[in-house]
Design a binder for these strands. Structure first.
Length: 423
DNA sequence: TCTGGGGTCCTAGGACCC
DNA sequence: TCTGGGGTCCTAGGACCC
């Protein structure tokens, strides 16, 4: 059966999520900021046209933004996560084989389909728009890498109506010719420069590069990419992503933190979040790292950053236990006299909860009671909203919490914040 | 004053095993 | 003076993705 992939990519996803609930902003310039209102991480087309770069620190471009009447939002992951779930549910109806690739992208496999792929692509696009309000671009090609390229080209070409089909040989050739090698999925900045030095500038030149050279300079991963550009599928659809091997929870603080007590609250809160992610995939962690750092951008301030790892006596997913260990680690690396800007917790040696090797002499096994307690806590938080139940160690006031000055509502996940329409 | 937060895979080299 | 032939595991570093 001939392979055929759709890559469905939401247009300016975070911006679109905000616009769904503020329809007056369609056609107007909009940006969304990263956590802590740090950088610009999503731009509407109008803003892209102004030449504002992705990732610019907000404080540097604030004036420009204000001058041009750009609407600004803090990132609202509660909203984006839920909107993403709705988009994916809609897409799942169009193919039995789907890979949710990121919060705003999914691959559909339509191998063996009969009929016009582009027409089907338009159906997909229309359904998502109607059911969720989110505009998407559909890239269509025989390999995932080519489908990514197709959707990228589709976004640059308003005339295509959001569906870009590269199944035709001639069109594919033209697309590869016009695309920069750096636009290819799997080619980042370093490889782009390397390719440039060897005179490879376009995606077509990359496709035609000799296998041996690619293998030597870009590893087996690069060779797969090149073959995919030739139309040979090498990157299979990953329908059920493996459980994570590492889980990280870290944040910058809304303001500098100096006191150990406040750091402890933050670390406890991040540990709680990491443990939630751990349990959500049914795992336990065998080791843990805690790290803290000062603000590296304030070069004149005294700098300190440190991290420490320990192995747990027995793998665990029990929040109180993990918090206890994390705070012990924090005490070991904390130094007085610094302004801390960031802290984080990482969990490793992750395994299915039932597989953990027990220790005959340890007092720290996760008991059945403990597991039931965590299930109850997670269940309540799922049903009633995150943070409904939390651990006292996380603190109450949380003065270290991130800045989110332009936060929109939790329109789809919180009863009190459901939008009201007046007719 | 203000600068994000997650992840994955691959390779080379060294330690160690029989 | 002579010094095999496999294999695994771990780590650090480098590349990439959103």
């Amino acid at each position: 059966m001939k392979s055929l992939y759709f890559l469905v990519d939401c247009n300016n996803f975070y911006v679109s999520c905000e616009r769904v609930f503020r329809p007056a902003l369609w056609g107007r310039p909009v940006v969304v900021l990263s956590n802590n209102d740090g950088n610009v991480v999503a731009l509407s087309n109008e803003v892209k046209e102004m030449g504002l770069p992705f990732g610019a620190p907000f404080f540097e471009v604030k004036r420009l933004i204000r001058k041009n009447g750009v609407a600004v939002f803090s990132s609202n992951y509660t909203l984006y996560g839920d909107m993403s779930r709705r988009v994916m549910e809609c897409l799942a109806r169009f193919s039995p084989e789907m890979e949710v690739y990121s919060i705003d992208e999914a691959f559909l496999s339509l191998r063996g389909m009969t009929g016009d792929p582009a027409a089907y692509g338009r159906e997909v696009r229309e359904a998502v728009r109607q059911w969720t309000g989110i505009p998407v671009t559909v890239g269509i090609a025989p390999t995932k890498t080519m489908a990514k390229l197709a959707s990228r080209m589709g976004k640059k070409d308003p005339a295509c109506g959001g569906v870009f089909d590269l199944t035709d040989r001639g069109r594919a050739e033209g697309a590869l010719e016009s695309a920069d090698a750096g636009d290819v999925w799997g080619v980042g900045r370093q490889y782009r420069e390397l390719l440039r030095r060897y005179g490879i500038r376009t995606a077509r030149e990359l496709r035609d590069a000799p296998d041996a050279w690619v293998r030597r300079n870009m590893t087996i991963t690069g060779l797969r990419t090149v073959w995919e550009l030739r139309g040979v599928p090498c990157i299979p659809l990953d329908e059920q992503p493996a459980p994570k091997q590492g889980i990280v929870s870290s944040r910058s603080f809304g303001r500098p933190v100096e006191r150990l007590n406040e750091l402890r609250e933050a670390v406890a809160a991040y540990t709680g979040r990491a443990a939630e992610k751990l349990r959500a995939q049914g795992s336990a962690a065998g080791s843990m790292t805690v790290f803290i750092s000062t603000n590296r951008f304030r070069e004149t301030d005294p700098q300190y950053s440190n991290g420490v790892t320990c192995r747990l006596p027995v793998p665990s997913a029990y929040t109180p236990r993990l918090i206890q260990v994390a705070l012990g680690l924090l005490d070991r690396i904390y130094r007085e006299g610094y302004s801390y800007k960031k802290a984080g917790v990482m969990l490793f040696e992750i395994m299915p909860q039932g597989d953990a090797q027990l220790d005959l002499f340890s007092r720290f096994h996760d008991t059945d009671r403990g597991r039931r307690l965590m299930r109850t806590v997670d269940g309540l938080n799922r049903a009633m909203g995150r943070h409904t139940l939390r651990f006292a160690a996380e603190g109450i006031e949380k003065p270290w919490q991130m800045r989110r000055a332009f936060l929109s509502g939790r329109f789809t996940t919180h009863w009190k914040e459901i939008p009201v329409a007046r007719a």
